[in-house]
Design a protein around this nucleic acid. Structure first.
Length: 423
RNA sequence: GGAGAAAUGGCAGAGUGGUCGAAUGCGGCAGUCUUGAAAACUGUUGAGGGUCACACCUCCGGGGGUUCGAAUCCCUCUUUCUCCGCCA
């Protein structure tokens, strides 16, 4: 959520910046400012009414105390009108505040100045590329075929138990999953991230805190009986740890990592690109989350990008980094770098990580603040990234490491797996 | 799931209708003393709205009500604790 003060101060800059998202925000911003005026005017009126009423109440109290009950009764009558008035004003105020809030929820974050223009993923800017693409033999298979051939993932069995998009990992497949999780967590911990275990269900307030609600309502699994949501990413519970917190400046930087399963309804995605592990309703991910001082958040973003690079280097997977264009940028992000691994067998890039700076957008909703050197409360910056999402890393490994007689395990994972080949 | 008790500032904890945004202690911050630190002493120390700045308004778990006036009374929800039951 954008800060009202920022909209008041630099309305035109905001409207201009949002054009990068291919949005004309003129009307909504003007409506916001109008409602804000109205809200403040109503607030002032209400405050004055209440002030008068408080004053009278005090006088009545004094009169009763000094035994002047009759005079008190006269004053009491005067308060009746004030009460009526304040009731109406309170209702007006609540309506205006609620409408204002609804409008603010609809405005996405301001893209960072480095965000390139564009409307689709075609327009994302490749900023880095590394690793060699292996030469596979003619019989190279996509991962869903490999999974079947070596009996390590059973998609049909998952359909029986739950439905499409809920695979069953078996034997060495399951072990490889566990190895990846441990390996990622270890790498993140080494880099200074504190490991956390968090709930996989969150309440409504948490959904609003990080911006999944109301924007992506339909993408989360919702448990009606308890009004809870299955998390689409660990970002939600981990970032919400700081909801309504005022932290000390000396607490920066805050670096957390967490492994969780992620649940996404993925309503409306079908077709060839969702085969196998490419798009699932439940998948595993190790996430990194940071809370930073505003002056340090872009350095932090860079260091997160470097960190993910290092992991991919160690796994020896060919990858590239994209700076997302305005049209592809998530609703709440100011700047996002996507990592994609090249899948030789599918001959396409697979997104495996997304690292973003949200600046104050989430912090404003979360009321996540820190005390600056003058003792004033300021909004912090939040960031997060995947380090990493499992299924497509797994797909990348299976497809890029396949040989005639089995799938090699990347060297760094062998100690975690306890085997060096799937055959 | 059943019965009872409770929820107040960073923490602990007073406050049962007006003088309460709220005693006191601890913690935090600033200062005095000290070569420095500790101790001691002095001052200061919640959040939001509003204002150029004040004034002023709101907030004592959430929501609603009674009253001229609510931290204090009533209703309701949530959470926590104790006991019982069940159980990984």
């Amino acid at each position: 959520m954008l800060q009202l003060q920022a909209i008041r101060d630099s309305k035109n800059n905001i409207i201009n910046a949002l054009k990068k998202r291919n949005i004309d925000a003129t009307t909504i911003v003007e409506n916001v400012l109008e409602l804000d005026e109205k809200r403040r005017a109503t607030q002032t009126k209400l405050d004055n009414t209440l002030a008068e009423s408080n004053k009278l109440s005090k006088e009545i109290g004094m009169l009763f105390k000094t035994g002047k009950a009759q005079e008190a009764t006269i004053l009491k009558e005067k308060t009746v009108a004030l009460k009526e008035e304040s009731k109406t004003l309170t209702e007006d105020l609540n309506t205006a505040a609620e409408e204002l809030q609804q409008l603010l929820y609809q405005i996405p974050n301001i893209p960072h100045e480095s965000v390139p223009p564009g409307s689709t993923d075609e327009d994302n800017e490749e900023v880095f590329k590394e690793g060699s693409i292996p030469k596979l033999n003619k019989n190279a298979l996509p991962h869903w075929e490999l999974a079947k051939k070596y009996d390590i993932i059973d998609f049909e069995l998952g359909v029986k138990i739950t439905g499409a998009g809920f695979p069953i990992y078996k034997g060495k497949g399951a072990r490889l999953q566990r190895a990846l999780i441990s390996y990622f967590l270890d790498k993140n911990t080494e880099a200074g991230y504190t490991e956390m275990q968090v709930p996989h269900l969150v309440n409504e307030a948490s959904g609003f805190g990080t911006g999944q609600l109301p924007d992506k309502e339909g993408q989360m699994y919702h448990i009606g009986a308890d009004n809870l949501y299955l998390i689409p990413t660990a970002e939600v519970p981990v970032t919400n740890l700081f909801r309504n917190e005022i932290i000390k400046e000396s607490d920066f930087p805050i670096c957390y990592t967490a492994y969780t399963p992620c649940f996404r309804r993925e309503a409306g995605s079908y077709g060839a690109h969702v085969r196998g592990l490419n798009r699932l309703h439940q998948f595993d991910k190790v996430e990194i989350v940071r809370v930073e001082h505003p002056s340090k958040s872009f350095d932090a973003l860079d260091s997160m990008v470097e960190h993910v690079k290092n992991i991919l280097r160690e796994l020896k997977l060919p990858y590239r980094i994209l700076r997302l264009c305005g049209g592809d940028l998530g609703f709440t992000a100011a700047l996002t770098f996507d990592f994609e691994v090249f899948s030789t067998a599918q001959d396409r890039w697979l997104e495996i990580s997304s690292v973003s700076n949200f600046e104050t957008y989430q912090a404003n909703r979360l009321k996540l603040r820190y005390k600056d050197e003058n003792g004033k409360n300021q909004l912090a910056h939040t960031l997060n990234g995947s380090a990493l999402a499992l299924p497509r890393v797994l797909a990348g490994i299976l497809e890029n490491y396949q040989t005639e007689d089995g799938i090699e395990i990347p060297e760094v994972l062998v100690p975690y797996c306890g085997f060096s080949k799937i055959d």
